[in-house]
Design a protein around this nucleic acid. Sequence first.
DNA 1: GATGAATGAGCGTTCATTCAT
DNA 2: GATGAATGAACGCTCATTCAT
Lengths: 196, 196, 196, 196
Amino acid sequence: MKSVEKHNKILVSATKVFAKKGFFNARISDIAKEAKVADGTIYLYFNNKFDILISVLEEEIGKIIEQIQKAIKKETDPHKMLTIFVHKHLAAMKQNKNLAEVIHIELRQSDKLVKEYRNKTFKQYIDLISEIIRLGQEQHIYRKEIMPGIAKRAFFGALDEVSRVWTETSTSSYSLEETTEQVLSLFLFGMIERRD
Amino acid sequence: MKSVEKHNKILVSATKVFAKKGFFNARISDIAKEAKVADGTIYLYFNNKFDILISVLEEEIGKIIEQIQKAIKKETDPHKMLTIFVHKHLAAMKQNKNLAEVIHIELRQSDKLVKEYRNKTFKQYIDLISEIIRLGQEQHIYRKEIMPGIAKRAFFGALDEVSRVWTETSTSSYSLEETTEQVLSLFLFGMIERRD
Amino acid sequence: MKSVEKHNKILVSATKVFAKKGFFNARISDIAKEAKVADGTIYLYFNNKFDILISVLEEEIGKIIEQIQKAIKKETDPHKMLTIFVHKHLAAMKQNKNLAEVIHIELRQSDKLVKEYRNKTFKQYIDLISEIIRLGQEQHIYRKEIMPGIAKRAFFGALDEVSRVWTETSTSSYSLEETTEQVLSLFLFGMIERRD
Amino acid sequence: MKSVEKHNKILVSATKVFAKKGFFNARISDIAKEAKVADGTIYLYFNNKFDILISVLEEEIGKIIEQIQKAIKKETDPHKMLTIFVHKHLAAMKQNKNLAEVIHIELRQSDKLVKEYRNKTFKQYIDLISEIIRLGQEQHIYRKEIMPGIAKRAFFGALDEVSRVWTETSTSSYSLEETTEQVLSLFLFGMIERRD
DNA sequence: GATGAATGAGCGTTCATTCAT
DNA sequence: GATGAATGAACGCTCATTCAT
């Protein structure tokens, strides 16, 4: 097995273990067993336990973030951009449940390094939303009263919490399509019934 | 000092320490020092470290949840109910930042007992939102296409993430009033600009 | 309740608790609860936990030892003296099972103070046996080859182990009389069948 | 060092420490230091502190018990069997003083697991005595009035207490041979002087 | 004298990390 | 590079003892 493959195998195993037990309850030996390597081998690829978590965040989550960012930057229509954002995000969360769990749980950690990651890479991701909103406001599609700095948080929080439904329940629950449609509809039109 | 007061002092200290370091990095001795009691004293009031976290969730958060639930149940107008919910929730989060941090971080834990709490008390809290939405739908105020089960999550997720702004930054940032107004406006009217 | 009575009540309670859990597993609060006093009260009557054990040994066991010593010193016939020793010892062990348990278990402790007690008071008790044997040898009743220093230990060890039967089993098992008779017969006549 | 050797080294060290301080006063770090390993290493070979004691009982004592049992089963003459039993037991106690101390002290513990060991393996050992006595009675060598169930206890108690003399005193005291001879003579012929 | 809440030293145990093989 | 036995720092928790009431 090539070095890169082993690095990745450990990362995927760590994601699985972190998802199941949480970072602090996960043991290096759990990850090693899951990856079918010796405990010591892990330290050939990562500096320490925390480095593994950071790597999961940076590499695993990073890949998804990058994908979504790319897909959006091809578009110019704010509506379509938002649609892509919502759909891709929820799809990724539904597909890779272990990673979703890690995002839900570990991204909140009070740890300095985790906060750092959230403030750098993850902030860029969320800021995509505010950029889209601003774009929409410039094109007079979105209401100018909306404050993008607050709206981006509301939007991401909604997506995050909504996607949790798939990691919580093993039963089918909501489909990806209806969830995407609901969230978009909610943020675009609001809840109020119009009679015009 | 009366027993109840000391119980409470430890709880407040624990909330502060958990907020700063997170549950797993918090030491019993940290909490003891913060509460100005001996390590052993803590065990006169709580069974173990985890029991303290659960108590923070159940007692401290519980109080706030109860308050909000009460305030809402006096109202009958869905709009006013939502307004109260948003305002009270954000006000509580802004006022008690330590507790807010604990909610943001620890409520996500993969631990069984924490999940249990989230599934019991906390679910009731979130379900308040779906009830209000259903009420609004019956009164033809809210669009019938909205699925309350998804909307409640989006709504709570938005509130939760939005309120994080106050624990993250020490600078003034957004005011309570404008944040409340923004979130309400977003969920009620959506982002799309109407020209009617 | 007079001071002396409380002192005694604690001692009896301690004997019971030590018998049940052993010295190290016994907690001061166990003894306090058994004696129906507050934890702190115990320290008005004893210096520390170990002092209680020593007091049990010295006072409770001491009383019995004294009784037996007195009864024997009234006699002059070695046979009768041995008979009294065996009977009284076994009777005491069967009667006060908690105390018997403490003798069985705690008298062995490697602790310095316990060893000291065993070397002082308890040695005197066991030395009663060697004195009786020597007396018998002088009167040409007991074989002169018997070494009293070894025989006294064999004798006491036998009594101690034999009496354990009553603390081990809740069922009736052997009676006091047959046990006394057996031990005496064994040490006096040995096991070999004589055909004379 | 092979795994088995280290396991054994810890066991021997533990026996020494238990002998000196007693189980409850012995610290894991004492045993580790004695065995020249790190504290944590002990837990690679034993589950917990108590497991070490149980292992000392089962493995160390077990070896001796087995040896003696084997040696006896080769014999058919009750007298010779008893002689072997006494000699081997006392020899083992005199040779391995640490183990002797542990037998003297820890085998009495009120702990459930210790009692269990005493009731299983150790009982078998003591029952060897009653079997020999019964055998002697069938061959009309030993008096039929002797109750083997009581005599076995008296016999073992005598041996146990007699062997204590070597762990108590550092001075030479009694030799192995004279002690063996005395105990045998005592139990076979009793103390009474015969004039026939 | 009596209480029992408070104390804090002390220890068993865990587990991330190292390093000889 | 890979292993996994060994390490030892770190911490939750207990409980004998104290002392203000």
